[in-house]
Write a protein that binds this DNA or RNA. Structure first.
Length: 597
RNA sequence: GGAGGUGUGGUGUAGUGGCCUAACAUGCAGCCCUGUCAAGGCUGAGAUCGCGGGUUCGAAUCCCGUCACUUCCGCCA
């Protein structure tokens, strides 16, 4: 349990978590919910719960017959007010599991402030309840102490962020939610306007341009707990509206920002969780290194099992599947899975499916059993090759070697998925460890086959290394950006960059992305013009706040760290939003709905 | 847009062709009980097994379709 809650002092109300042996003899009034009732016939015990804790109340007919009579009617989740005397519990009935377990309140009066229907799930114990029901009755779900802990943790983290940044000269600025749509990136949520029928605002995917404009304003250091919106498919760690800790600073190098954010994350982790940080200062690796060793730009560094390139040993292989891939400029990579040589045919099929679901055409396996090599491809491999693919990459008896041959992107994706799978299967992902790391030097651009143009890897405002300037024409795919991502345990927590602060730089990037000067002016005129008026060098970062809290709270779903989240289809099941609107509302907006298919 | 998983009293689960007139726990209702703290004991109510169709003498169970939830791929500058 983290020390993240405080007892209120302003109202003078005594909470259900505050009474101790010292309070014995005091007359008190407690208010809260009935967590549990234990009716022994003569005596009735009530565990009274509020956000701050649980206190046992005892109703004794010999002390107050009227109160005891009312207590007969109490049920779970009734809201009551109890007046009574704080007593030491009798010898032998102290409950060491409760912080208030040395005392109880002897009730002299009780008032039922509100009754409650039987809740659709248990408030007083944690369980794995149907999420649809939890979301429909979210106010009850949030009544559960474990959910309140998360709400509090999030509050503490956000408050710490604000204080931390304030102490360092950052200014919190609110930026508008009704902005202009730009078709790049994710699909925008659109908001129609009645003042301009047929025209739309968009909700921001991030305050990117706005915070850069604040740097042009000379604000020097900006932050915001910024709500962002993206109309894309949901995931366990993605919501249509989410919150970022958004930061921008002037006159910085990437290192300045990384150091600052690293301090912030270390402080938060160590203050509010009991998790161990795997390595301080956070390791830094380039994008290429991350892709090479882990096949992933957000690797889970809690375990090894790195990808190994075995192409060199297979230059002359007779195994056609490998030879063909290598001849076509592809690669063959392997991971060594410890202790899984005894995998059954069925288990091998299972992991092959995982590889295929992640784009691989197949999965080659070698099982190093006590009886020797077991592998469907062994017969195609020379003795030297067999050695290279086993002991040559550190595999020993009892281990399982997994190999994928394909174009680098396919190999990376599939092997990375397998690595993550075995990290879980083999319990290598210690939930008490936070393996933070920075990934840097992403490629500025990657080639979009469909659009036949270069696309910004991160965002189009990301700056690039001056020494790569000469690649702008010849080899745009190899320009290194000044981007940095903070990853932890296989999650991308945040990303940012030092930006283009000159119009000419920014135009070059837009140009490579296939945006004509006219389109650039139309969509990004404001920022481009601003860059002409003494824009300082600047850069920033945005942290996924929900994702960060999720990880620190040890939750597996982003929905568990958002008070009122949407479900997997973006539906708010409590309010049943989105919902149709009145025809009059559409008329005001100049909108007509197409008939449904 | 695609693939997988799940769907059985309020809740969590069991049941994978007949023994199911659907079981267990908990919750709920009633009764008993003065030191419980996941209180205990007894009694009881509560599910046409997501929905529709099919196969079969017989379907919670097999098949097809559909819906919902969920995970992943695509998507997420």
């Amino acid at each position: 349990m983290y020390a993240i809650d405080v007892q209120p002092e302003v109202t003078g109300r005594i909470t259900c978590g505050s009474l101790r042996a010292d309070n014995a003899g005091e007359h008190v009034t407690l208010k809260g919910w009935v967590n549990r009732r234990r009716d022994l016939g003569g005596l009735i015990f009530i565990d009274l719960r509020d956000r701050f804790g649980i206190t046992q109340v005892v109703f004794n007919p010999e002390v107050d017959a009227a109160a005891h009579e009312i207590a007969n009617k109490l049920r779970n989740e009734y809201v009551v007010e109890v007046q009574g005397i704080v007593n030491h519990r009798p010898e032998g009935t102290i409950n060491p599991k409760m912080v208030t377990g040395e005392i109880e309140v002897e009730a002299h009066h009780i008032a039922i402030l509100n009754e409650s229907k039987t809740p659709p799930f248990y408030i007083n114990e944690d369980g794995d309840y149907d999420e649809a029901v939890r979301l429909k009755y979210r106010y009850l779900d949030l009544r559960r102490p474990s959910m309140q802990q998360i709400v509090l943790l999030r509050h503490r983290i956000v408050k710490f962020m604000r204080d931390f940044l304030d102490e360092r000269g950052f200014v919190e600025v609110e930026t508008p939610l009704l902005i202009r749509s730009t078709p790049e990136g994710a699909r925008d949520f659109l908001v129609p306007s009645s003042a301009q029928p047929g025209e739309f605002y968009a909700l921001p995917q991030s305050p990117q341009i706005l915070k850069q404009l604040l740097m042009v304003s000379g604000l020097d250091r900006y932050f915001q707990i910024a709500r962002c919106f993206r109309d894309e498919a949901q995931r366990a760690d993605r919501q249509p509206e989410f919150t970022q800790l958004d930061i921008e600073m002037s006159f910085i190098k990437p290192d300045d920002l990384m150091d600052l954010m690293e301090t912030l994350m270390i402080e938060i982790t160590e203050r509010y969780t009991e998790r161990q940080i795997m390595q301080k200062p956070f390791p830094r690796m380039t994008y290429h290194e991350a892709m090479d060793k882990y096949g992933n730009d957000r690797p889970d560094l809690r375990f090894g099992m790195q990808l190994q390139n075995v192409g060199a040993a297979l230059q002359n292989t007779e195994f056609k599947a490998f030879a063909g891939v290598l001849a076509a400029g592809g690669e063959v990579k392997a991971i060594v899975v410890p202790g899984c040589a005894d995998y059954t045919r069925k288990q091998i099929d299972e992991i092959t499916e995982i590889a295929k679901a992640n784009g691989a055409k197949g999965l080659a396996t070698i099982q190093l059993t006590a009886d020797g090599l077991k592998s469907p491809i062994a017969k195609f491999l020379s003795e030297d090759e067999q050695v290279a693919l086993t002991t040559g990459i550190g595999a020993g008896e009892g281990d399982l070697v997994l190999m994928i041959a394909d174009q680098p992107a396919v190999v990376a994706k599939a092997l990375s998925a397998l690595r993550d799978e075995f990290g879980k299967r083999l319990n290598l992902t210690d939930p008490n460890v936070m393996a933070y790391a920075w990934v840097v030097e992403f490629p500025l651009l990657d080639w979009d086959e469909e659009g036949q143009r270069w696309d910004a890897t991160h965002n189009p405002f990301c700056g690039y290394f001056e020494e790569d300037e000469h690649l702008l024409e010849s080899d745009p795919g190899n320009i290194r950006s000044k981007q940095y991502d903070l990853v932890a345990n296989g999650n991308e927590l945040g990303g940012g960059s030092v930006r283009n602060h000159k119009r000419s730089q920014q135009e070059k990037v837009f140009g490579l992305m296939g945006l004509s000067p006219e389109i650039q002016e139309d969509r990004f005129g404001s920022i481009l013009t601003a860059l002409e008026y003494g824009a300082p060098p600047h850069g920033g970062i945005a942290f996924g706040l929900d994702r960060t809290v999720m990880l620190l709270a040890g939750e597996e779903s982003i929905r568990d760290v958002i008070a009122f989240p949407k479900n997997n289809r973006g539906v708010d099941v409590m309010f049943e939003a989105p919902a149709p609107v009145e025809t009059e509302q559409l008329d005001d907006l100049g909108l007509v709905l197409k008939p449904k298919q």
